[in-house]
Amino acid sequence: MARNEQTGIRAARWYVPYLLLLPGIAWLGAFFIVPMASMFQTSLDGGLGNYSTVIADNSEVIRRTFVFAATATLTCIAIGYPLAYFIATRGGRYKNVLLALVVLPFFVTYLVRTLAWKVLLFDGGPVVGILQDVGILGPDEGLLNTDIGVIGALTYNFLPFMVLPIYVSLEKIDRRLLEAGSDLYASPFRAFRKVTLPLSLPGVFAGTLLTFIPIAGDFVNADLLGSDQQTMIGNIIERNFGQEFFRPELSALSFMLMAVILVAVLVYARLLGTEEIA
């Protein structure tokens, strides 16, 4: 990819590419970069104290946000990887149909999709009924307003973002490598561990970014399906932006959220050894 773009032609007039880029970059500059700077500046109104105040006031919410995001992301990997693997290796001529089923949820608005979970998790609903019959839930226990309910819906909402990149990376693997592995007496499990898994890690990495980041900033699931015990950082921003949105604390909170995510992504990239993607 990089190589291809290196060989791009040099424009007859040097400013041609810049002219093509100008409208888009101007838009991004004015409405993405400038706002970030504006938010950062707002967060410093009254000094750095905003950060310590906001962190002290919301420490439990902050902790919960990242625990929820990490749990939901790991669940996405745990169930999304097998699905992607199944489609890539056993999909056969139904591959495209199966992939279409994976993206089908995106054809229903996010908010309405999440509302459907309210139907499913209702105290008298089918899921609670079955779990009570099996004995996983006690007779008085439910799923609405619980951590599990919110994390389950978060996982559901972002799962396709995990499945698709993993599928793409699995699909790209050269089958001959696996054949070579088995010719050299590697068991299927060992071949998977030594060949397939490492080669699919870029997909897992991309999928993790695409799920962890939006989940960490979400407020819809916690609001619709949770109670005060499931409040996330996004909810704090959502509840307060209307009245006193100039409040520097909210800017500090947003900025902190972004900074933590950036650091987490960099650490994760280093751990997975896929820095070139980040």
Binding site: P214, G217, F219, G234
Partner: peptide, 19 residues
Amino acid sequence: PLTMPEVVLGFSLLTLFVS
């Protein structure tokens, strides 16, 4: 922009519009 949570993008834009 694709690597930032929506709530951060949205809120930062709002601080600009407000200011």
